[in-house]
Design a protein around this nucleic acid. Sequence first.
RNA 1: GGCCCCGUAGCUCAGCAGGAUAGAGCGACCGCCUCCUAAGCGGUAGGUCACAGGUUCGAAUCCUGUCGGGGCCGCCA
Length: 593
Amino acid sequence: MTGMWSAEGRVCMVDVFAEIRELVIAELTAQLGKDPDDFDASAITIERPKTVAHGEVATNAAITAAKGAGRQPRELAVGLAASLQTDPRMASVEVAGPGFLNMRLKPEVWKENLRSVIRAGSSYGGNDRGNGRRVNLEFVSANPTGPLHVGHARGAVFGDALGRLLEFTGHDVTREYYLNDGGAQVDTLARSAHLRYLEALGKEIAFASGDYRGDYLCQVGVALKETYGDRFVGRPEEEWLDRFRKFAVDAMLDSIREDLYLLGIRMDRFFSEVSLYQDGRIDDAIEQLRQRGLIYEGELLPPKGGHEVDWEPRKQTLFRSTAHGDDTDRPIRKADGSWTYFAPDIAYHYDKISRGYDELINVFGADHSGYSKRISAVVSALSDGRTPIDVKLTQLVRVIKDGGAAKMSKRAGEFVQLRDAVSAVGPDVTRFVMLMRRNDAQLDFDFEKVREQSKENPVFYVQYAHARICSAIRKVAQSGIDTDDARLAEASLERLGHPDQIALARRIAEWPRIVDLASRNHEPHRVAFFLNELASEFHSLWSQGNREPELRILQESDLPGTTARTALARSVAVVISCGLSILGVKPMHEMRN
RNA sequence: GGCCCCGUAGCUCAGCAGGAUAGAGCGACCGCCUCCUAAGCGGUAGGUCACAGGUUCGAAUCCUGUCGGGGCCGCCA
């Protein structure tokens, strides 16, 4: 799994750390006289120590295994070190501290890995961990009552990047948007559109409180005028509400699709809430819960603190979500007998489960934090615990403009729209900046800083590294050296001997681990951080070329060395390009003014 | 009152399903362009990882509690 056979019949490593891990486990089980296939190695870590004194690769294998085997950690470590030492890849193995094994590999291991990197190209670092598992990834799901704002953009970018990451690690991802086209807010939208329609016909209008006043509805009003003329002027609501609702929702959906498209995002499916009200699909889902004894008539306790005065006990139809980890049971019917918002959500998740996904992921905005437990409870209940669900919350985006936080009032379109951000700084910068933070940490989106083309702006820093490499390779090619990947992968790498060159090769070898970790934890930001580190290390090596000319990539007097250094640089570019594509950012081949 | 997230350097944040001397950027200070793009690089200064217990050979990381910041909490969606 971690190695593949090349045409020449030798093993090409695609993940050095995974290879070493296998080696360690093999030697360890041999020492302990255990069957490697029947050995729990989950506690064994392979890591890159922070300090060089601790070697290049370290493992806690002896420490963790000693406990269960009734052996002394250090004594076990010494034996393990001796057998590891005989592996041809190993330069040295030392026992340290309570039983750590600090290994150094022969430089050739890191250098040879560069060939695999170049051969693998854009697939380097990917793996098949998902094994085709079908993942439903729901994100954005903003109400179709207006254009997306920067907060939605964060959820959109996060969800899409997570999708790419999962695809890169062998998952079959469905990107889905739950369209709340059925609630009262859509009626309000229709009424607001009606007002804009009247306005387009030259009438005086007055908004009611709660109406959507954003001017994005003006063009909807104009379109309505063009479609219906003055048919619905002064007519009762029953005559126009349904068709205005559909008209406005369609218009908003188009606008949302357009916004997402600006960020390079395409949903596989928009799932309509309204469709759930048809064919008794909500009843079906509730019935499933009922059969599991999770539906009952009862009263909720009042929420404690301040508001008891307004509280009137009321008998309601409740879902016993506490049986699946929620804090309180949840109402599914309002007092008038109609469904609460939660009921179609139950049906929606029942639908997802019925579609046979192996895993569900929901990306919610911070304002839905209180919602995650009940959704998890629903999925747990309806799948009988079989379908795992991960709810990821994206925290607020604070927009900084002119040095201060911009107002983000929900009223009257005062929020900063997604398309404003994208048109100001472009999709690539928007995406990268939003992925430079963990999803659950608040994020500042500073319009000024993000436009700077300096180290302050991480996307340019990474792009600059890539552009530098492309530029260098162009120059190398001009000097008559064949820089095709196929040729670079075959280059003699003898001339790569400087510690910093080896260190860079080592960094490149970490990429598969980063991908795996980011994918497992659903944390695409790790990719962005890694790219930053890689770029930094490359820039550093590049600048050293100023002081030490033998480190420069292109040296006319040393063509074999030039080819080797080009291969190293090319490997960096492969990883940057690959990482950026996970983030959904296009690599730049040259920087323009 | 309950639940969720957060609390790491002056500021903004990383810290890899516990690991060995806690990192980066910005800001501050000192340096580096006869050199493949200085849109860059090197160095110095700066932290009782909010606090207190617990688990462990070992805790910034896991558990409990406290304090502080943000968010959510039926008859909106």
